[in-house]
Each structure stands twice: as structure tokens, then as C-alpha cells.
Design a binder for these strands. Sequence first.
DNA 1: CTGAAAGCGCTAACAG
DNA 2: CTGTTAGCGCTTTCAG
Lengths: 332, 332
Amino acid sequence: MTTMGDVARIAGVSASTVSHVLNGTRKVNTATRLRVEAAIEETGYRRNVVARSLAAGRTHTVGLSISALTNPYFASLVHAVERALSEAGYVLIVGDSHDDVGSEKRVTDSLLDRKVDGMIVAPAAGSERVTIPEITRTGTPLVLIDRGIDIGCDQVGPENFSAARSLTEHLIELGHHQIAVVRGLSGISSTTERFDGYCTALADHGIAVDAALVLDGESNTDVAEREVRSLMSSANRPTALVSLNNAMTIGSLKAVRALGLSIPSDLAFVCYDDFEWSNLFEPRLSAAAQDVETIGAMAVELLLRRIRGEEFAPQQIRIPTTFHHRNSCGCA
Amino acid sequence: MTTMGDVARIAGVSASTVSHVLNGTRKVNTATRLRVEAAIEETGYRRNVVARSLAAGRTHTVGLSISALTNPYFASLVHAVERALSEAGYVLIVGDSHDDVGSEKRVTDSLLDRKVDGMIVAPAAGSERVTIPEITRTGTPLVLIDRGIDIGCDQVGPENFSAARSLTEHLIELGHHQIAVVRGLSGISSTTERFDGYCTALADHGIAVDAALVLDGESNTDVAEREVRSLMSSANRPTALVSLNNAMTIGSLKAVRALGLSIPSDLAFVCYDDFEWSNLFEPRLSAAAQDVETIGAMAVELLLRRIRGEEFAPQQIRIPTTFHHRNSCGCA
DNA sequence: CTGAAAGCGCTAACAG
DNA sequence: CTGTTAGCGCTTTCAG
């Protein structure tokens, strides 16, 4: 493998000069630069970023710990983050935490060991006690994504509370009183906030929260299917349902289909998170869509500013959701 | 930041010993090891993987260049690869090539510069002329995924030809003669192979390929929608359609819906690639599903063997697809 | 069983 | 405008 020294020798200059033409870090005589470039071309030299990182103390690498790469929402998030980073000349290392603090710790430790310049984390439940402290201890810039944690660090996520509230209110305005909800994994802020939105909507309209109508879907398709199925075949059958994330929406729809019920005639349905195909089939889903691109881009922007050493108060950014009003809610 | 030297000083040993307890690379007296471990604990020392990589000449990092992180198929592939790698103690760096050689070159160059121990690439059209040679020149182990290239290197992908042929045959056996096809991006092997499968099925049953029924969907939802829409509103309307990948399936369905046609009564429909929701809505899609997990795991396995220095003839592995027979094809 | 010492390939003062 | 010289933090012979 050719090194910078080899190139220098061939070009008849010092390694230092080669480094500077490569990085544009200082003025170099055009003639010498040309010679260096020729030598690089001739040898097919590739800089060794590992050595460079060690010497410079920066890796131009950012780590991302995500909950579930298989969830299309998170996949898009990874995509958005990757794009924003690569535009800025950074490279992304991804790890999947499977929404488990243990795995998350392993992922973030490995990222820390690799001396990433910054880190983006979608914190699992319990993260604030184990993962986050370790990251902040090293002084690595950190921004939380999707879910928040009550700690002084930058975070960017979607609007949860108001979106879930509107979703629920829409159902109430349609005359429903028996509105069930499938809520996500406990211990993460998005679940709490969305559920709060649901509760607030009910409260605002003088409807008491009926514990029997609150389903724990654990952000999981199968669990949601089971829960919805059992609720919908019980005596206490609701007339409307709000699903609080995409995976659970699939599960809910499966359950409804398996029972031979139809939406919206037997059950009005709205959900948090939109799908590419939401508009394609009957029932066309009335859904609150997140703006993933913006969430990803924002997170990267904040992180890069921290990496550059900018000082500013911790930001807590909420990206608005958009309500796509279709017909699963039972409107014309 | 604490370094290995600091730990050594505190433990009263040499850096060399610290290194060896950390890596288990040689026998260390239990007493000394304990002291070292205590010092590590006390200081909260984290190894510097960058320095380690430079010294050891291996980064325990694998690069992945993928066509489109937003396509759920590729997202699952990334997931499968990430999982297999992390089990083996490797870390994944992802780059999105957007199916463009230019971007692909940028991605792979950056990966090469980072001295990844190996590389997995879903080659874009033209890759064999620009990206692949550069990778092999550096001697970095490489395995091609999803698409192949006529070059002596390991590749793993789904069965394309036979799956597409079966899909088409199914339609023929149902009595269709006017079978249209939406094919993917030109220049990549999966497109060619799947299209060949379609042509062969027709030929085997004495049906000539009608150029007017061959649509170029460019592996893109919008393009497919436009094409299908225009074909389906023409005089020469086919009675059946086979879509050759997931993105184009969405487009096709959009077009069909927009025209107010219904599947399968107005148009029998089968597709390559399955969806999580294929079974959820009418028409329930009859589809050939890829086994992404296996594809990812296989690719990683081959790559790790190459990284370990094993010598063997280049492998070309095809993972079978599964036909999910539902009702969009028009069967009971 | 342990330590000394020579790098890995590059960056960045510093000096000229 | 360019070269010299220290490292960056770790691994790994080679001695002992």
C-alpha cells in the first residue's frame, strides 16, 4: 500500500507538503502541487483515514443508535440522517438497539470506542440511567432523536401530544364516545406523550378514560393484533380506535380483518404514522404523518453545530405532523 | 481522556501488559490482571479503536453501499447485514448510492479511505467499470449483494429468473395472453433476469412478447404509475400485469386505482417482492417474496471468510423466493 | 510472566 | 512557500 511518504518521495517533496495539498490546509506552489498530484495519480494513492483520524483527533464519523432498522419509519430516519451527514462530509455508523438498553449500551460503547465525533440516539427505555450518562461523560456531542429524555441535551422529534389529541378529537367530533387506543412501548416519551394527547382529548370533552379501552401494543405488530382482537371480540366493543404507531396499526388492521369486521362501518379508525400505501386501499387510512426528512436533517444540523464547538442552550425541537384526512375515520 | 499509558501507570505495569489483558492476547498473572482491571474501572478507561486500528492494521469495520435506504427491501437488507456483522464483532458503515455510479464511487471511496476490512455492495448500473475495479485494486474483500456482475467475485442475491417466470406462468395458466410487465432500472442484473423470466414464460407457451406491453418502470413508483396509467387507458389494454419490484408495484396499484379499475376483475396482478400488508387489503397481492434475512446473513458469512483469509472459488449464491398465492391474480 | 521499543500513516506546530 | 520534528494511542516483536 502506498503511503504519503511514498508519494512525497516520488514528487520530491516532504510528507507535510503532500498532506497540505491533499487537505488544502495551506498555500502550495502550483508547480509543486501539480507534481504531488501527478504522484498521487501515478501511485493510485488513497489517504489512510484511520491514521489521519488518530493524528488529527477527529474522525469525521457520526454514530447513530436506532431502535429498529426494520421499522420503515426508522429506516427513513436513517436515510435522512445519512444524507444530511454525507452532504457535510461525514460518514454514518449505525447500530440497532432493538429498543433494549442492553443492546443500546453495547452499540453506543462501540461507537464511543471508535471515537465518533458525535452521536445521535433514539433512546430506549432506561437509557437515561445507563447509556446517556456514559456518552455525556466522554464529552461526545449528543442529540436525541424521536424520543426525548428529561436531561439537558438537544433533542428533535415529532409532535406527539397535539397530533394524538387531534386524532382523538376528530373521532369525538364524529360522535364517538367509546374510543379505544393502542399505545406503544412503555418508558419512552413518545408513548407517554401520545397517550397523554388521547387522554386530554377525552377529558376536554368530558369523556372518562376507560381502562378497558386502553391497549398496550408495545409498539409491536403481533402484540397489537392480539390485543385488538381480544378487545374487539369482547362485549365492551368500542366504536372507534386510535393506533399510536405504524407497527401497531398493521397489527390492528390484521385483527379487524381476521374478525371479519370492516372499517369504518364497524369501527372508525385513525392512526399516528402514515404509510406509502395509506391512500391505496380501502379503508384509506386517516393518519398523522411525521416529517422524517426534517427530523433527520434537524438532528444532524444541531449535532454538527455542537461538533464545531458552537455553544448554545440545549434545544428541544418538535417537528409538526400533518393530518391526512382520508376515510378510515368514517367521514365522507 | 485517559489512555492506556495512564492505566498502566496507575496499575504499576507497562502499557504492553494493559494491552494484553484488554485483548486476552497473552497470559497475565491473575494479581496483575486484577490490578489492571481495577485501574480501568477506576479511570473509566475506554480503548481508542482508531489507534488500535492503525497499529493492528484492521478496523473491524465493514462498509455497505446500498441503492436506496428508503426502499423497505433494502432497509431490511441493511438490518440483516448489520445484525450478522454485530454478532461477529464488526461494525457497519452505510452509504447510499441512490443507484448512481457517481454517488456509488464517492461512497465506496470513502469506505476504502476508512480502511474497512471488507465491503458489501449492491452495484449500480455501470459499477463494473468504475467502482468495482477500484475496490478490487485495493485488495479489499468484496461481496456483491442483490445484483450480480460478470466478474469473479462472491455474490448473493435472490432468485430472479425462475421467480419471474413462475409469476408469469401463473397468469398464463389462468388463461391470460395479454400480459404486460413493468420492469426495473436498466443495466442491473436483477432487471434483466426478471425480465428474461417473463419472456421465457411467454415463449414457453407460444406467446410473442408484445413491445407495447413492456413498460419501463425504472424501479421507481412514479414512473411505474405513469406508465401503467397510460397503458391501461390505451386501446391495447392487457388483461394481466406483472410488476417486477416493490416500488413499481405501488406505482402500478396507484395507477389502477386512479383509473377506477379493479383487481383482479379488470386486471389480474402479480408482483415480485412482498409487503408486510400484502395480506391485509383487497386485492390481497399474489407475490414472490425474497428471503432478505438469508441474503444478508449469507453475504456477511462469505465476506467474513474472505476477511479471515480463507481461499475459495468465487461463490454465486441464489436464495430462493417464496410465492405467496393470494387473490390479486384472480384465483379463488 | 512482563517490559522496552519500534513503529502504524498521518497532522500540525515550529522553524526557516 | 516548504521541510523538520514531534507526537496521536495502540500493538507487537524481541528480550529478559
